[in-house]
Every structure is written in structure tokens, then in C-alpha cells.
Simulated scan of single mutants.
Amino acid sequence: MSTPERAVERLLYRYADAIDAGDLTALGALFAHGRIAQQTPDGPLTLAEGSAAVEAFYRSLVILYDDGTPRTRHVTTNVVIDVDEAAGTATGAATYTVLQATEGLALQPIIVGRYRDSFRRVEGEWWFDTRAMSVDLTGDLSRHLRS
């Protein structure tokens, strides 16, 4: 039987798998009850909320190649998850590193940053509430992001 911490952790990896597969519909579905945000000094700034809006946000931003993928691998490390079982909520923090290789770009890290997440349980299932992202280091993002 899965613990709440493992169920929440799986969301982190489902996010990485969906974006690396270019399955932006599946990625958006992870936010049926949540939002994507940019971490600012004043707190999270919402970029998109709900499945359709999150999917559209990523479609406007991420470059997909002929194989339907962004030719990336999102590596999620330093995962810390705290669950309040009684409240049906959780918080999490993790580091991400994105590697990319394209025809014109040798395999290399292109961005490193942090996720600050909150989660909530809806009808017994864990969902993203807020994924707030911040960037620590960047490389060549020109083959990954449109802007």
C-alpha cells in the first residue's frame, strides 16, 4: 500500500515524464485542481490554472520536435514532502535539472531550479494545488522554450 508521501512524490515524477514525452495534455491534467506559478519574492504568481489553461500555457512555451517530444529529460532531486493527513494537504520542495539534446545541440544541462509545491487530496486522490517554479541557473534554452 502506498503512503501519502509516495503518492505525492509520484505526482512529481508524472509531471517530469509527461513533459519529456511531449504529452502536454497529460501534464495539464495533473493541474485539474491546481495551478502553475512563478515563485517571486512576494509569493507565487499564477501563470495558468486548471487543466486546459496549463496545457495551453505549455503548448505556447515548449518547442516540440518531429518525434513529438521536447528532446529533454527533467531530473527531479532533493525531494522533501510533508503531509498533513488530517487536512488532506501536503507541501513539497525539489530541485530540477533539465537536460536536452537536439540535432544542433549536444547533450547538456539547460536549466536548473527549484519547485515549491502544495498538494491537496480530492476524493481520495492527490493533486497539485500550486507548483511554484524558480530558476537558479540557465544554459542554452533557445531550443527548448519559445520565449
Rank of each mutant, 00 (worst) to 15 (best):
D66G: 14
G50L: 03
D84W: 00
V54R: 10
T72F: 11
T77W: 00
T46L: 02
A56D: 04
V83W: 05
V75A: 00
T46H: 01
R73C: 15
V79L: 00
V62R: 02
D66V: 14
R73A: 15
F57R: 06
Y58F: 14
E85R: 03
P70R: 07
R71L: 15
I63L: 10
R59I: 01
S60N: 07
D82F: 11
G50T: 04
E85S: 13
D67T: 13
H74N: 15
D67L: 13
A48R: 03
R73M: 15
V54T: 00
A86E: 04
L61W: 13
D66Y: 13
T69Q: 10
E49T: 03
E85D: 12
A56P: 02
D84V: 09
T77M: 07
T69I: 14
G43N: 01
Y58K: 04
D84I: 01
A52Q: 06
Y65V: 14
I63S: 06
D66K: 14
T72Q: 08
N78I: 03
L47F: 06
P70C: 07
G68E: 05
T72S: 10
T77R: 09
A53I: 13
S60E: 03
L45H: 12
G43Q: 02
F57H: 02
A48P: 04
S60T: 04
D66Q: 15
V54Q: 01
I81N: 03
V83P: 01
S51L: 02
L64R: 14
D82R: 05
P70W: 02
V80L: 15
A86K: 03
T77S: 10
I81D: 07
E49Q: 08
G43K: 03
I81P: 00
E55M: 12
D66W: 14
D82L: 02
Y65G: 14
A56E: 11
T77A: 08
G50H: 05
A86L: 12
R73T: 14
R59W: 03
E85C: 01
G50Q: 01
L47W: 00
L47V: 04
G68H: 03
Y58I: 09
V54N: 11
V75K: 02
H74M: 14
T77G: 09
T77I: 03
A52M: 02
D82Y: 09
D82V: 10
G68M: 07
L47E: 01
H74S: 15
E85F: 02
L64T: 14
P44F: 09
V83R: 08
D84Y: 06
V62I: 11
T69W: 10
Y58D: 07
